[in-house]
């Protein structure tokens, strides 16, 4: 049965222990950032940053809000990144539903990055493998996460932990239990119950985010406001959904051009050429 991580934005206190837990478990190097006058300090998802918390200030008419949201791979039910990958390097794990990149197969073409509808493209490119990672792999930690330089990286759902009966590292560490992990059905019912409770407490815009357009997600959000407020697409689609139609516009255009100008002018050339003979 598909698993899901539930991130409850209404419970998250933005302590960012998830960020550190992820870096630690996955042997990921620190980013290089500069204070830019915000709490997120221009952190972005990248080859060594697989989750982060964003801070959003919003002056609602009735009250000031400071929203927190976890940027991370959503582990789509129908993952666009896997669909577009020309090397077949991205697959959906049948046991957990996690979307995994096989870095041995990946060529670093970044196609998946642009296909992802979330967080400005979740899979990110990384040029180098750190010494710590080399050492880690030397200890036999190659399956399922072999690190290859110049390939794409993103959250793996700690599939190695999950398959050994643990929760993903970020979930285990979360102090206010804003992150939970389990079967998707169970997570959905927890999320729905939470939203009902939040509505009772006056959070009229509380909602579950599990967009159908990408086949549902393996990361479910409980949000306190509309998805756009958090930088989430309201209705994301599998990016390859309209591929055939898009091809057709190209083919039709080729057809049109076959007639205008080619058939018109070349046919005329045949006549002109005849006249010339």
């Amino acid at each position: 049965m598909a698993k899901a991580i539930l991130y409850d934005a209404s419970k998250c206190t933005a302590c960012r222990a998830c960020y550190v837990a992820c870096k630690q478990w996955n042997v990921l190097a620190a980013a290089e950032v500069k204070e830019l006058g915000t709490y997120y300090n221009a952190l972005t998802l990248d080859g060594t940053t697989w989750n982060l918390i964003d801070f959003i200030e919003k002056d609602d008419p009735d009250r000031f809000r400071w929203h927190f949201i976890s940027h991370r791979c959503m582990h789509c039910g129908d993952p666009s990144c896997a669909n577009v990958c020309a090397a077949g390097a991205i697959t959906k794990d049948s046991e957990t539903g996690f979307v995994l990149i096989d870095n041995d197969k990946c060529l670093g073409c970044k196609n998946c990055h642009y296909a992802c509808p979330f967080w400005e493209g979740v899979p990110r490119f990384r040029d180098e493998i750190s010494e710590a990672e080399e050492e880690w792999m030397d200890h036999g930690n190659k399956v399922p996460g072999k690190r290859v330089a110049s390939t794409m990286y993103k959250c793996r759902g700690c599939v190695d932990r999950v398959k050994n009966g643990l929760e993903p590292a970020c979930v285990t560490t979360c102090p206010p239990d804003a992150l939970q992990f389990g079967d998707k059905g169970e997570m959905l019912s927890i999320a729905n119950a939470r939203v009902a409770l939040l509505k009772e407490r006056g959070e009229t815009k509380a909602q579950v985010y599990d967009p159908k357009g990408v086949g549902g997600t393996g990361v479910i959000y409980v949000l306190l406001d509309d998805p756009e407020v958090y930088g989430l697409p309201a209705d994301p689609k599998v990016s390859t959904a309209d591929m055939v139609t898009k091809w057709l516009t190209g083919l039709i255009t080729a057809g049109i051009l076959t007639i205008v100008p080619f058939w018109m002018v070349f046919k005329a050339a045949e006549a002109e050429g005849k006249g010339g003979e």
């Binding site: 642009y114 296909a115 994301p236 309209d242 898009k246 190209g250």
Partner: peptide, 12 residues
Amino acid sequence: MGYSGVVLADKA
């Protein structure tokens, strides 16, 4: 002619 257009068009 078309495929590279589609490569861009089936992105997010």
